[in-house]
């Protein structure tokens, strides 16, 4: 017991000392995390704040309520961009899901050269959207690309001019986007297929299921959590698409292929309407949240279910 008292005193001194000694640790931990978290929170809040001010070329304080939102939504640019987003988003997501799934199932048949094929389907992911957009703008240019080639081969009536067709131009963006990221869907689906319990497949085969029934009834149902993930990621990409359109159509012909991200950029940096640009950005964020929040809730529920099981 006699030891205890001096020991305790020494301890408290050691306590403050060690806290000081650990200061560099705390700094190493907190500085990067605070930089990251701080910029995210403050930037998001600041942009939301600006969207409620009358700012034009420079941010100014003041409160205009939802005026920026109503005027953004009333512009033709925005309505066209949002309609395009619906078309582009659904077309792109459905096509890349379908192609990704088909590719994954085909690659899952233990075929030769799987690695090479997989690399081929995925390489577009390594290329920038600017490059993708530029290349496809050449290929889809009727006076330069596929149409010219086919015409030159003798079929002079062939027309493939979506790039300059106001109604069809949005689909050129779908084509390029699907080319770029269906391989990603394939990779995720393939990983999912590979993780299907081999005993499950054996059991189904013993039950007498043929290949089609095997996929339809046994294997594909296990894939649907992955499908949801793929859809959400692709939608997230679709909602924020910018570079691809800039490089492929520049938003044209006219404003036929505008997407929300281009409208935001136009408001902020070409027209100098900061508040409206901010409002458009917030609208983008809300669109994104409309996708992400249900997804987060779904994931939470899945996890709870898994924890209870």
């Amino acid at each position: 017991m006699t030891h205890a008292v001096p020991a305790a005193v020494q301890l408290s001194r050691q306590g403050t000392l060690s806290a000081l000694r650990r200061l560099p640790e705390y700094l190493t931990i907190w500085v990067p995390l605070l930089l990251s978290a701080g910029h995210l929170v403050s930037f998001a809040l600041w942009t939301i704040w600006v969207s409620f001010t009358p700012s034009t070329l420079l941010p100014v304080s003041g409160w205009v309520g939802l005026r920026n939102y109503t005027s953004v939504m009333a512009t033709r640019n925005w309505t066209i961009a949002f309609d395009n987003l619906l078309l582009f988003g659904s077309g792109f997501v459905l096509l890349s899901l379908l192609i990704g799934l088909v590719l994954a199932i085909l690659l899952d048949q233990r075929i030769r050269g799987e690695n090479v094929l997989r690399s081929i389907f995925l390489y577009p992911m390594a290329v920038s959207f600017v490059v993708t957009g530029t290349v496809w703008s050449w290929l889809l240019n009727p006076g330069l690309g596929i149409q010219k080639l086919v015409n030159g081969l003798g079929w002079t009536a062939f027309r493939f001019d979506w790039l300059i067709d106001r109604d069809m131009a949005i689909w050129t963006i779908v084509i390029a986007a699907v080319w770029q990221s269906s391989g990603f869907a394939m990779a995720l689906f393939l990983a999912g297929l590979r993780s299907v319990d081999a005993d499950l497949v054996k059991a189904a085969q013993i039950d007498g299921a043929g290949p089609i029934r095997l996929y339809r009834r046994v294997i594909l149902p296990t894939l649907w959590p992955i499908t949801v993930t793929v859809v959400v990621i692709q939608l997230q990409f679709a909602i924020t698409t910018f570079d691809l359109v800039r490089a492929l159509t520049g938003g044209g012909p006219g404003i036929a292929t505008l997407l929300p991200a281009l409208v935001v950029y136009d408001f902020m940096f070409q027209r100098g309407l900061l508040a409206r640009g901010a409002a458009a950005a917030v609208l983008m964020l809300l669109t994104l949240l409309a996708v992400l929040l249900p997804y987060a809730a779904w994931q939470y529920a899945q996890r709870r279910k898994a924890a209870r099981a």
Partner: peptide, 12 residues
Amino acid sequence: IEIGGRIVDNIA
């Protein structure tokens, strides 16, 4: 906790 007669509660 006391190890070897020394209270170690605040010792790493």
